[in-house]
Amino acid sequence: MSDINIKITDREGVTHKVLAPTDMAMNLMEIIRSYELAEEGTIGICGGMAMCASCQCYVKSNHELPEKSIDEDMMLAEAFNVKDNSRLGCQIQMTPELEGLEVELAPEV
């Protein structure tokens, strides 16, 4: 099976259970956009290049994610509302290991 189940809590506090394909090279930001879980123009502004932090989210589950890249780390250092569990959704590739991932979108700035 190439889809995984993930839970995304939107900026209004509503949790959505969605299916995310793992065979299409999609990242979390693209999943959020495809399900329209954030207002148009408020997420993925830079197109997924780790240059804007509009797709910042808080990872709520205990999944082991790949280490932050230098670009992601630098962008989060300049972003607002950053927490210890903050990640950029554009940098989280959908893989079978992320079955059950739970994230919450950071507030829009």
Rank of each mutant, 00 (worst) to 15 (best):
T42F: 08
A77H: 09
N81G: 05
S86M: 12
M75V: 12
M75Y: 12
A77M: 05
M51I: 04
H63I: 04
C55E: 06
L37F: 10
E72Q: 15
C46R: 09
C52R: 01
E72H: 12
E40Q: 13
M29K: 02
M51R: 14
Y35T: 10
K60V: 06
A53H: 06
I45C: 06
Y35K: 12
S34R: 13
M75L: 12
M74V: 14
A50I: 07
S86N: 10
M74N: 15
S61I: 03
K68V: 00
T42A: 04
M29R: 01
A79F: 00
I32A: 06
E39G: 07
S69P: 06
L76K: 14
M49W: 07
N81A: 11
M51D: 03
M51A: 15
N85Y: 08
N27R: 10
M74I: 13
I45M: 05
A25R: 10
G48H: 03
E78C: 11
G44I: 02
I31M: 03
D23F: 08
L76D: 12
C52A: 08
I32D: 04
N27L: 06
E40F: 07
R33A: 07
L65F: 09
V59E: 07
S61Y: 04
Y58H: 11
M74E: 15
M49P: 01
G44R: 01
I70D: 15
T22W: 15
E64Q: 13
H63A: 08
A77C: 12
C57Y: 00
C46Y: 05
S86G: 11
E64N: 11
L37E: 04
Q56F: 01
A38D: 02
N62K: 06
D23I: 06
S69H: 10
M26V: 11
E67F: 05
E36Q: 10
M75W: 10
G47L: 00
A50E: 14
E40L: 08
M74Q: 15
M29L: 09
C55V: 07
D71F: 14
A25E: 09
A38E: 01
E30M: 11
L76Q: 13
A53T: 15
N81Q: 05
T22A: 14
V82P: 14
A53V: 10
A79C: 05
Y35C: 11
A79K: 02
Y58W: 02
I45L: 07
C57W: 00
S86H: 13
